[in-house]
Each structure stands twice: as C-alpha cells, then as structure tokens.
C-alpha cells in the first residue's frame, strides 16, 4: 500500500490536481461553501458528477431530479469498475468489502493508470497498491482543492486554458499505453470518432452509447479477424 502511495506522486495526480483547482474556482463563483466543495470532492470523487451536482445545487433543483442527473453522469463508472475487478482480485482470497472500498477510487484518471500499471505487478500486490494509490491521490487532491478555494482568485486565461487541455492529452496517451490487445486500440479509435456524434445527437446518455456502440463494434470487428465469422 505504501508503494501505491509513493507512486501517487505522479503525472496523473498532477493532472487531477489541475482539474480540481479549476473546479474550486467554479465552486466559489457558484456560491458553494468550502465545506460543501470539499464534501463533494471526497464523497463523489468523479469530476463530471461533481460539476452536475454543483449546477443542481445552485439552481435549487430537488433531490430526486438531481440524483437522476448525477446517476446518468456516473453510469460510465460501472463498466470501468467491471473491467478492473478481474485484475485487482485474487480469486478465492479477496473479500467483497475490500473491493467495495477500492471501487470508490475508480474514476477515469485512476482507472487509466491502473489498467496501464497493475498488470505488471504480482497479483497479491495489486489491490493494496490500488487502494494506496487511490487514497493518496484523493487525500492530496482534497487538500489542494481546499487551498485553491481559499487562495486562487482567478487564473490567467492562458494558464486556465492550458490546464483544461492537460486532461484529454494525458488520457489519450495513457489509454493507448494501457491497451493490451488490438481490440482495445480499435475500441479507442471508435470511441474517439463516435463520442462527438452521440454528444450532438443524443446528449445526456452520449457517453454510454459511445461505449456500448463503439465498444461492441470494436469487439465484433476484431473477433471476426481473430476467429473468422463463426
């Protein structure tokens, strides 16, 4: 677990910090208190859902509609967690409650990092590493979000813009690095192409459709290449 915590001093931690520093500014402009901002950072730990709930809180939306909006923004976490489970689990030994705790740290950044780095480790070491990594990154980003809320008035335009570009470029490179079979790379290309299409024509559930359609096409296409039609 300590090794995971040490590995947290890394590019993904820096990139997440940058993203949450940007969010702290938004939260303050929206009128959220410091305690509310930090509670969302620690409890939800998925930036798109946090941004959706921020909008809901500021517009006085009711509990149920806000919950549905946030749940729609978080569906993506389910297939991501599913794909991670066989990697972190030691069959017959790992308890479900350990996996439930670890699952809280599943968010795009930590997931990409885990898919890329965990397969190179011993099976027993993976879950402690992931929890150590996730816990350390969460704690660090939590503190930096609080500091940014208190200290950063407004970032210069170009700095803010450069911070926003960090995330997609980091995902682009490390998702390619995490690909283990051709199907992963084809799925990535399909997702890149379909994401904007579904965003324009089916906003709201666009990411889920991108994943299901793009992923299934990539799976079927590469399966036919591997095994023939039947």
């Amino acid at each position: 677990m300590a090794r995971g915590a040490r590995a947290a001093v890394s590019i993904p931690a820096f990139i997440l910090t940058a993203a949450f520093v940007g969010y702290a500014g938004l939260a303050r402009e929206t009128g959220l208190t410091l305690a509310e901002t930090l509670a969302m950072t620690g409890l939800i730990w998925a930036l798109p859902s946090i941004v959706v709930l921020t909008g809901a809180l500021s517009s006085g939306m009711g509990l149920i509609p806000a919950g549905i909006a946030v749940a729609l923004a978080s569906v993506r976490l389910m297939p991501m967690t599913m794909a991670l489970m066989p990697i972190v689990k030691v069959p017959g030994k790992t308890r479900t409650w350990q996996l439930l705790i670890a699952s809280h740290f599943v968010a795009v950044t930590a997931w990409v990092f885990a898919m890329k780095n965990l397969p190179d480790m011993t099976r027993e070491g993976r879950l402690p590493f992931f929890i150590g990594f996730g816990g350390a990154v969460t704690a660090f980003v939590f503190c930096m979000t609080g500091l940014a809320y208190l200290l950063v008035e407004r970032l210069p335009d170009m700095v803010a813009g450069a911070l926003v570009l960090l995330t997609p470029v980091y995902f682009l490179c490390s998702l390619w690095g995490a690909a283990r079979v051709n199907a992963d790379k084809v799925a990535m290309a399909a997702g890149l192409a379909l994401g904007p299409v579904f965003f324009v024509y089916l906003p709201g559930l666009d990411l889920l459709w991108t994943g299901l359609v793009g992923g299934t096409l990539a799976y079927l296409g590469t399966r036919i290449l591997r095994r023939g039609l039947f």
Binding site: R76, P79, M80, M82, A83, V108, W111, V112, P168, F171, L172, L175, A179, V181, A183, D184, V186, A187, M188, A189, A190, G191, L192, A193, L194, G195, P196, F198, F199, D206, L207, L208, T210, G211, L212, V213, G214, G215, T216, A218, Y219, R223
Partner: peptide, 17 residues
C-alpha cells in the same frame, strides 16, 4: 474483452468531447 472495449470506447468518448 467486450467489457474492456466498452469501457475503453467510453473513456475515448470523454477525450474527444
């Protein structure tokens, strides 16, 4: 393999957005 494809395509969708 299919679940990984779905998750990967989904994250790639986040990137292009």
């Amino acid at each position: 393999i299919w679940v990984r494809c779905v998750a990967t395509a989904l994250v790639a969708g986040v990137i292009s957005k």
